[in-house]
Simulated assay, not measured.
Amino acid sequence: MGKERRRKMTIDNQLNQLELSWKSYEWLIKDRLIKIDEITRSMIKEMHLCGVPSSMIAEHLPRRFEDLKRRVVDENDRRFHGNQHSRMVNE
């Protein structure tokens, strides 16, 4: 078997493993995202009830979520002793 064919088989196998791993976690990630969406909708409703305009919410909320995501990834990186697997989430 040629070197190029072995390389293609390796890449195909890696892509297959990537897809299998994704599919095994996708349901859980979707479930958590649905819960986060429900919480966010409740939070936005509360903000509206307190008089916060939609334009202010739209300006600030995405930044707050981005900051929170970055903090969670950084904290987990430290907790797992510098494990860089999650690093690409922050990039």
Rank of each mutant, 00 (worst) to 15 (best):
K69P: 01
E59V: 07
N83Q: 06
G51L: 07
M1F: 07
I11G: 00
Q14F: 01
R63H: 08
V73W: 03
R71G: 08
Q84S: 14
T10P: 00
S42M: 11
V89Q: 03
D74F: 11
Q84P: 11
D67R: 14
W22K: 09
L18Q: 10
R71V: 10
W22D: 06
K35Y: 03
S86G: 14
L33W: 13
E66Y: 10
M47K: 12
G82A: 03
N16S: 06
K35R: 08
K69A: 15
A58N: 14
V52T: 09
E75A: 13
S86H: 12
D74R: 14
K30Y: 06
R5V: 07
M43L: 08
V72K: 02
A58Q: 13
I11P: 00
M43W: 07
Q17G: 01
R6E: 14
I36T: 08
L18V: 07
R87A: 14
L49V: 06
E59Q: 14
T10Y: 11
F80D: 04
V52M: 14
V89G: 05
S24P: 00
R63S: 08
I34L: 11
L49D: 15
D77I: 08
R63K: 12
L68T: 09
E26I: 00
K45D: 07
I44D: 04
H81W: 08
M1T: 08
N90T: 12
D67E: 15
W22H: 07
K35L: 05
D31Y: 09
M47R: 09
D74Q: 15
I11R: 03
I11S: 01
V89D: 02
E59P: 00
R71A: 13
I29E: 05
M9L: 10
V73Y: 06
W22N: 05
Q17D: 11
L15P: 03
E38K: 13
E46R: 10
L61Q: 03
R7I: 14
N16W: 12
R63A: 09
G2W: 02
R41A: 09
W27G: 15
N90D: 12
M88D: 15
Q17E: 09
K35Q: 05
D37E: 08
E75K: 12
L28K: 02
S55M: 10
Q14K: 04
Q17W: 06
Q84V: 07
E26N: 01
H60P: 00
H81M: 11
K23E: 10
G82L: 01
D74E: 15
S42R: 15
S24W: 02
S21C: 06
W22G: 02
L49C: 08
L68K: 03
V73C: 09
R87G: 12
W22I: 08
N13P: 00
S86A: 14
R32I: 06
I44S: 05
N83S: 03
D37A: 06
G51Y: 09
M9S: 02
Q14L: 10
T10E: 08
C50S: 13
A58D: 13
L68D: 04
S42P: 01
D12F: 04
K8G: 00
Q17K: 06
M56P: 01
R87N: 11
D12T: 02
S86L: 15
K69M: 15
L68G: 05
E4S: 10
R7H: 02
W27D: 15
F80G: 01
L49I: 08
Q17F: 09
D12P: 00
L61C: 02
S55T: 11
H81C: 12
